[in-house]
Design a protein around this nucleic acid. Sequence first.
DNA 1: TATTAATCGGACAAAATTGTCCTTTATTGG
DNA 2: CCAATAAAGGACAATTTTGTCCGATTAATA
Lengths: 145, 145
Amino acid sequence: MMFSKACEYGIRAAVYITLQSLEGRRVSVTEIAEEIDSPVAFTAKILQQLTKNNIVHSVKGPTGGFEIDRKDMDDVKLNMIVKAIDGDKIYVGCGLGLKECNANKPCPLHDKFVDIRTNLRTMLQSTSLYELATGLEVGLTYLKR
Amino acid sequence: MMFSKACEYGIRAAVYITLQSLEGRRVSVTEIAEEIDSPVAFTAKILQQLTKNNIVHSVKGPTGGFEIDRKDMDDVKLNMIVKAIDGDKIYVGCGLGLKECNANKPCPLHDKFVDIRTNLRTMLQSTSLYELATGLEVGLTYLKR
DNA sequence: TATTAATCGGACAAAATTGTCCTTTATTGG
DNA sequence: CCAATAAAGGACAATTTTGTCCGATTAATA
C-alpha cells in the first residue's frame, strides 16, 4: 500500500537474512521464500537487486546463499532497500501526480504531504536491519503470515 | 507514490470541479481532463465512480456536466475520495504485506508504521474539497503541470 | 419532434507489475 | 576432474492497472 510488492518482499528477505546471519547461518533463496512466505523465483530476482546494491552479500555454489556482514546490519537502513527496489519515487514526486510541484508552485496538497513524507523518510533513514532483526530474535515481532 | 494514478486524477478532478462550482459553473469531462492534465476517457471512468459514491453530482445532456453542491464541498473529505477509488488498503493492511499483522502479532515495522499511517489518515479525514479549492482560487496552489 | 451535447457503461488495448521457468555460471567437496 | 548445489540472468507468462473506443442513454433547445 506504500511499497511495491517487490519492495515488501525485499525488506522481509533482508530482515530474515539479517536474523540468520546473526546466528552465523547463510541462507538459500528457497529457505528465505519459505520463511517470509513469498514466491521463490520472484524473491530470487529481488535478491539479485539487493546484492547488486551491496545490501546483502551472496555466495554461489554449495554451502552458498545469502548473508549480511555484521557491520552492514547497522549501516543498511530501510531507505537503501526501498531506493534499490522502488527507486526514489516515494520521496520525490507530487502526491497528486503533478510533474512540477514544489514550494514555489505547490499542488493543493503539497504542504500537508511534506509532513507525512518527511516522517516516512526519517523513519526509513533511521531504521537499520539490525534493529528490525533483534525484535524478531526476541520474539516480539513476526515475518510470516 | 501513495495513491494510485486513478486516485490522483480523482482528487485533482474533484478539486477542479469544486473550484468551478464555486463560480457556479458546471464542467464537462473534456474541460476537466484538459485543466488537470489527465487522459479524458480514463478521467471519465473515474468520475463515474465519484458520481456513484455521491462525491460529485453529474447531469446528462446538453449544458450537463459535473458539479458539487456547496454543502458537499465541506462535507466531502479526501479520505472519501480515496476510499471510493482505491478502497481502504491505505489504512488497512501491513506495511510489509503480511496478512496477519496487528498489535498482538506485529511485523518488525508495525509500530513505526502506525504513526505514519495515523498521520496520513488524520490528514485525509480532515481535509475538505473546499479547503483545497480555496487555495487554488487565491492563486496559492496549482493543479496542472 | 429532431438534433445535438453530454454522461454512462461495457468491451477492448496497452503498459506496468508480479510471477515462472530454464539455462548458464560459480563453487564446493569427494 | 566430476558431480552436486546454489545464485545469476534472460525469456516468457499472468495479472493488475492504466488507458481507449464506441454505442446507449438522457436531456436541452430549436
